[in-house]
Design a binder for these strands. Structure first.
Length: 502
DNA sequence: GTCATAATAT
DNA sequence: GATATTATGA
């Protein structure tokens, strides 16, 4: 690594001298035909090789296609289909290319926005030849910094550079794939448009699409390629899906381990339950879960982050209700996006007329609020917790993932883990009762292996959730104390007839 | 297509 | 440092 010094540097310099500024390949994007023409003339005048495009989407397509290699992108800020900032952002995400913004607007904010989004320069229109003469420097300096960053690495012969601003590429150990991409790169000395292997962030939207696809296919027939097809999302690969699917399955296994009891029997009875449930709770089943909150963490499939995402006021609303001996339904209120409606009111409307679910629920809660010894003891613990003891040990029961550092065999843990989880459900619930938990500890409540996970699995279509009546949501959520209910909820995803409404 | 595990992010 | 998430390779 350190052995590189002179030689490579010299080569870089040579390359730079050979190629810049002449022949710099510039992709210019502007929806204004006249501006574009002027720009083209100027660029040619500067001995660059301009390619002119009138809209950002086309530009992006060209860049993604990679047929032509570009060294730099010049883009207008204001464009109808996709503005320059968006284009800038996407380029930053997917490839390493210097982007220069063009605008008639010399507003400081706009400039800052451009720079913050990763633009390497911001030029005012009309652009002058002198300014264009210098743009090659951005390419050169970027190239240098790339080379330097490569010098710090062993034998890493590809052209990838720093992580992008919005997504980081992993560019360390790459094996067979690496060869492929470096071969591609050899087609041209300009590697600028090489795509980064971005790390996919599974946002709620993405996950919803994923679930939607699974629902369409049926969990038993599901396969990465099919999902990929149905999801129809650019930039996603089969591998991305496979990885996510793997995680999803692990999750399902964890919350509904087949190791407990007779799997087929369980399945059948749950299916019956499911039908009943679907009949009575046609809406709840899909709405229980999703909060429509953009980022799911730490337990994506469990609803863990839902409370984690709550604002302070929402959290305190939870606490308030709980502390006052409220029923479960109350503290669940904040799970819904509709909580804001209640933020200022004492009692959200709660209806509990959902037959079996509510009976179960009421049973559960009457027991728990009337103070059995078990509950009392747990409450005691709770109070300790709320006095500052970290409940993280409890949390681990809920957030426990079978994969530590990838080395453990997930399936081995499942049986025992989930059993523990099940046992912990009550304590989890109790915890929530009395303490003024921090959001973090609160989070532990939701992913109960029972309905909690059902809630987690169900993250579908936030819009639906948003429209949902709080009472519906509550009824759905309230289902989770019951194991049976839990099963049937889980079966919404497992059964073939799990169809998402809407 | 699935799984185990490595790499990376939090 | 532990854990979660995602990528990768078999």
């Amino acid at each position: 690594m350190a052995a590189m010094g002179g030689n490579q540097r010299q080569m870089m310099e040579d390359a730079a001298e050979d190629k810049f500024p002449e022949g710099l390949r510039v992709l210019a994007v502007d929806n204004d035909r006249v501006c574009l023409k002027v720009l083209e003339v100027l660029l040619r005048h500067c001995k660059y090789q301009p390619t002119m495009v009138m809209d950002a989407k086309t530009a992006l397509k060209m860049l993604r296609a990679g047929k032509e290699q570009f060294d730099l992108v010049l883009t207008d800020v204001r464009m109808p289909d996709m503005d320059g900032f968006k284009l800038l952002e996407l380029i930053g995400l997917e490839m390493d290319l210097p982007v220069i913004m063009l605008s008639v607007d010399c507003d400081k904010k706009a400039v800052m926005k451009g720079i913050n989004h990763g633009a390497c320069d911001y030029l005012m229109k009309p652009v002058h030849t002198n300014e264009l003469k210098n743009i090659w420097q951005h390419v050169e300096s970027r190239r240098r910094s790339q080379a330097i960053s490569h010098m710090g690495r062993d034998n890493d012969d590809d052209q990838r550079v720093h992580p992008g601003t919005l997504a980081k590429n992993k560019d360390s150990k790459r094996k067979s794939n690496e060869k492929d991409s470096s071969n591609e790169n050899k087609e041209s000395t300009h590697a600028s448009t090489t795509h980064k292997n971005t790390r996919v962030k599974w946002t709620t939207d993405l996950h919803n699409k994923f679930l939607e696809a699974i629902n369409q296919i049926g969990l038993d027939k599901v396969a990465p390629n099919k999902i990929l097809e149905l999801m129809n999302v650019d930039c996603l690969t089969r591998h991305n899906i496979a990885s996510h699917l793997q995680k999803y399955r692990l999750y399902l296994n964890r919350v509904k381990p087949n190791s407990l009891g007779d799997a087929s029997e369980r399945q059948n009875s749950s299916m019956d339950n499911q039908r009943n449930f679907m009949h009575n709770h046609e809406h709840e089943r899909w709405h229980v879960s999703s909060c429509g909150i953009p980022s799911w963490s730490p337990n994506y499939f469990g609803a863990t982050s839902q409370l984690g995402q709550l604002t302070d006021s929402q959290s305190s609303l939870c606490m308030g209700s709980l502390i006052h001996g409220g029923r479960m339904s109350r503290y669940l209120v904040p799970h819904t996006p509709d909580v804001r409606r209640f933020a200022g009111s004492e009692d959200p409307p709660i209806s509990l007329d959902n037959g079996i679910l509510d009976d179960i629920m009421l049973d559960e809660f009457s027991t728990y609020s009337s103070g059995t010894s078990y509950v009392d003891s747990m409450r005691g613990k709770l109070m300790e917790t709320s006095k500052g003891k970290s409940p993280s040990n409890l949390r681990s029961y809920f957030t426990n993932t079978p994969s530590g550092r990838g080395s453990s065999a997930p399936t081995n843990d499942i049986g025992s883990t989930s059993k523990t989880e099940t046992n912990m459900v009550n304590s989890g619930r109790t915890i929530s009762t009395g303490s003024n938990l921090q959001t973090d500890s609160f989070v532990t409540l939701t992913p109960m292996p029972g309905g909690g996970d059902a809630a987690g699995i169900l993250p579908v279509q936030e819009s639906m959730v948003n429209q949902q009546e709080p009472s519906d949501l509550l009824n759905g959520i309230n289902a989770f104390p019951s194991d049976d209910i839990t099963n049937l909820l889980n079966n919404d995803f497992i059964g073939e007839d799990a169809v998402m409404d809407g």
